[in-house]
């Protein structure tokens, strides 16, 4: 695996030097980056801008390699993910050539720090910046606030303090995501469900409240009450599951009374 990538790097690096055998078309430049397993795509058919992602080779990407791989494409990149790579502030100079860059993902890049942030906020079109799990601290806040284009920033597991987050979030038009969730998201809890058979069937008149049984389950079998099989027992309406149960009930009322709800 190492050898083909390295030889390709030499190829890409030589292409990047002015005056050399530079690739003629954007397609060829992209094809070269692809051969090095960098994902290059033109997501919007109406725009030449590119989305680039180094996820496949993230662990092997450092400042020099990123520069070598991406140099021919810089002016066209609008969406760049360098997540989980080893890039640092040393990449800021070539990143600043990405004048169309709108979204930059440096998530989980442990070498991305305040110096990196202070440098790249100069990108004129940068709207989304993912700094989750980076080494950025409160020293980045002023730089982030100074960017006129920035709309969203992700700060989860960075070293920015709650006070720093609050300063950021106070800026109008800037959404800050630090992985925090509202502590209580429930608005209302319904009462414990109780089962009754009270509503009339659709299209039928309302049940006479006086005939509604006091029990949900048959005192004899425990099966659900059939609303049509009710009778009065000591002034209460008791429901049964079938025609046979009232007879059983009458044979030993004391035994089955216990299964009825207490008044």
């Amino acid at each position: 695996m190492k050898l083909p990538v390295l030889s390709l790097l030499v190829l890409v690096a030589s292409c990047a030097t002015p005056g050399g055998d530079a690739p003629a078309t954007p397609a060829e430049m992209a094809a070269q980056a692809r051969t090095a397993l960098v994902h290059v795509e033109q997501p919007d058919p109406g725009s030449p801008l590119l989305q680039v992602d180094t996820a496949a080779i993230a662990d092997s990407v450092d400042d020099a390699k990123a520069r070598a791989l991406l140099a021919p494409l810089l002016s066209q990149i609008a969406d760049l993910s360098l997540a989980r790579t080893h890039v640092s502030v040393a990449s800021a100079d070539w990143l600043l050539q990405c004048q169309s860059l709108r979204r930059l993902d440096v998530r989980a890049c442990s070498r991305v720090d305040d110096a990196f942030v202070r440098a790249i906020v100069a990108l004129p079109q940068l709207e989304e910046l993912i700094l989750a799990r980076t080494a950025t601290t409160d020293a980045s806040i002023d730089a982030l606030l100074a960017s006129a284009s920035l709309k969203r920033v992700w700060m989860w597991k960075s070293a920015v303090t709650p006070a720093g987050l609050a300063r950021l979030a106070a800026r109008d038009g800037l959404l800050v995501d630090a992985g925090l969730r509202p502590s209580d998201s429930s608005a209302e809890v319904e009462p414990k469900p109780e089962f009754v058979n009270l509503l009339p069937m659709p299209g039928e008149p309302a049940l006479d409240a006086a005939l509604v049984p006091i029990n949900v389950n048959c005192p004899v079998t425990g099966a659900p009450v059939d609303a049509k099989r009710t009778r009065t027992v000591n002034g209460r309406v008791v429901g049964f599951c079938c025609n046979n149960c009232p007879k059983t009930f009458d044979a030993d009322p004391a035994k089955y009374e216990a299964a009825l709800p207490k008044p």
Binding site: E194, F195, V196, N197, L199, M201, A227
Partner: peptide
């Protein structure tokens, strides 16, 4: 909950 065990119309 108020139609427990009623027949589905």
């Amino acid at each position: 909950r108020k139609r427990y065990n009623q027949d589905l119309p």
